[in-house]
Design a protein around this nucleic acid. Structure first.
Lengths: 345, 345
DNA sequence: ATTTAGCACTCCCGGACCAAGAGTGCTAAC
DNA sequence: GTTAGCACTCTTGGTCCGGGAGTGCTAAAT
């Protein structure tokens, strides 16, 4: 809290931010005066505003326009002034993921959550899943997919399922696959796939079973593929919502930058990565976020857990002028919902 | 070919369409005259243009603007006038899906194809996969996913893999799962999942094995889930490319309609469904396509096969003013590529 | 010593108006 | 049948202007 940041000033800042959030227009002294019940005249407000501008909380788009909060202004608002709105009953109802079909795969669950969140918040919503090669395994299985093909199926502790096809193994019998499965599952639990692989490799040196080759092959393909896909899954939902935001609607260049960013896994990943490790909500305002191309959007995100380990992160992307009082509880609730749902799995 | 559609008129139509495709601006008589090597004066061209307009091939945005081809004009161009450009070497190289990691799942393969196609064509690209409950099975397997959970994994003949989680089966042994698998795989091949289910149900009436419940449960969950997810998978890539098209760049309403449509599985499905059943390329121009909201885009799509059966369809979505001579071969090639790649699986 | 009213000033925005340019349709000549 | 010529239409971009919104400053009021 800077010098001269007295109570009245923060009040005014709050009103300005809130008005700006709802109108998307620079806000003038007269408006604020009215909003504060005429307790202070426009002229006084103007003085306060001038102070706030000097401190970096506000800017004027041009002389003789109202003020607009800066990133710093928003930051201060969020850190000190924000009153969270609790969720309305209807909102909670709409987020009812439990209504999903029994047995829905984890990916689909997460994607649905994202979609619902996007609709409720009227923003674009994004989910990332942690890198598959860093997730711990729950179980690994091989199964015959065709005469000369074997499918490697890995179930992660988060409930996510990964699979790869292994070619050209026509001569292995069902029994042998069985044995491999039993063997794998003894070792697999709690390891990552790459870890499992090195573990097996060292074991293999000792005993020389007939199915060495298959298992070796499977693990190599599996581990390499997972390492290769590098980043985890990324889902973006509700892209169209950003077109509803007046700040983006006009400027096609900006839109293009944002949409392009949405198509790059790595960018989205960088954006939400920070939130993944923490369950607390993270808000990056404009240039605070780690992607230069998205210097004019805000990201509100939170990680979610599977048991003790962070498996992903869900959030919203929208204009800096977001309704944080609504959006933050929404994201928080959704992330918690995911955590509890995965807890039951 | 309408009355009075002489050679010269078609020539003029071709030039107009092609010029319009490359410039996105109404084209005037002077331009065409020059393009035809001054063989005809602008005045003559104007007469021909007036004829073409009367026949419905052209329109004027306003008096004293050049002409723009109508949907009918484009249709005629595509059906009778189009000269396909063969693909450049570099283009083929860029579509090199074979370079993908060995064992990449079918979904990922298809998505990559879509992405590459989108980049090459500078349009949005879309893939649909046929409804999972209509695809024939190659094999079905249950596997233990956790102490009280079983994972149902179904490999389709197209190489697509579906999975669902089945809850609360702690008391079944690995051996029993084995038996179920053996039993299932005897029956499964070539059936759809719902078919398999009714088949099993009738069998179950006869013998009462201990693992009835699990199998029944698995099939019910599987079949219902698949029926429920209704449509197949849909992937959209290269959305940002539509912002490069001048006809969409300005009009935000239109953009929003298109982006929203992209988020609705069912819409995309309706759009590409027709193409799925045929290997020949399908071109829907503007209002020809079955989605009202997308009355101002064209769709170029083609189905692809897995062996004898159509499993999906890939295509491009863009402005009516697309470079069909380039885009059609591209889509065709990509679809064929997918067909051959799936052939090897 | 604040607060406020008053006022001059600045800047944006929308509408009116105009000139240039592009393209047409028609007519009359080739 | 083709084309040159010409009058006409319509868009586009630029300029100009007036109104409105909002400010900063100053001087009066509390």
């Amino acid at each position: 809290m800077g010098p001269g940041m007295d109570d009245r000033a923060t009040q005014v800042l709050r009103y300005i931010v809130e008005d700006y959030i709802s109108t998307a227009e620079p806000v003038g002294s007269r408006t604020i005066s009215k909003k504060m019940g005429q307790a202070l005249s426009p002229a006084t407000i103007r003085n306060i505003m001038a102070d706030l501008e000097e401190m970096g909380f506000l800017v004027q788009p041009h002389t003789s326009a109202g003020r607009v909060p800066t990133g710093i202004g928003f930051r201060y608002y969020i850190d000190h002034l924000l009153l969270r709105r609790s969720l309305a009953r209807g909102e909670v109802d709409q987020l009812n993921l439990a209504a999903l079909e029994e047995g829905t795969p984890a990916d689909e669950l997460v994607r649905q959550a994202s979609r619902l969140l996007a609709n409720l918040a009227c923003q674009a919503s994004v989910v990332i899943l942690s890198r598959p090669d860093q997730q711990k395994l729950r179980s690994v299985n091989l199964m015959r997919a065709a005469t000369d093909k074997i499918l490697l199926v890995a179930v992660m502790q988060g409930g996510h399922v990964q699979h790869r096809l292994i070619d050209g193994e026509p001569d292995i019998t069902g029994d042998e696959i069985e044995k491999i499965n039993a063997y794998l599952n003894d070792l697999a639990e709690g390891l990552t796939l790459p870890q499992l692989r090195v573990r097996i490799l060292s074991e293999l040196r000792k005993e020389k079973a007939r199915y060495d080759r298959v298992m070796h092959r499977a693990l190599t393909v599996g581990a390499r593929a997972l390492a290769d896909s590098g980043l985890g899954e990324v889902f973006v939902e509700g892209r169209a919502n950003i077109l509803d935001q007046p700040e983006f609607a006009e400027d096609v260049q900006r839109l293009k930058r944002i949409l392009r960013a949405f198509e790059e896994k790595s960018v989205i990943f960088r954006l939400l990565d920070r939130a993944m490790s923490s369950q607390a909500i993270q808000v990056s305002i404009g240039s605070e976020n780690p992607v230069e191309d998205l210097g004019d959007v805000s990201v509100v995100a939170s990680g979610y857990l599977q048991g003790p380990s962070a498996v992903g992160s869900i959030g919203l992307i929208g204009p800096v002028r977001m309704d944080y009082s609504r959006v933050i509880p929404l994201v928080e609730y959704t992330a918690n919902l995911l955590t509890t749902m995965f807890g039951q799995r």
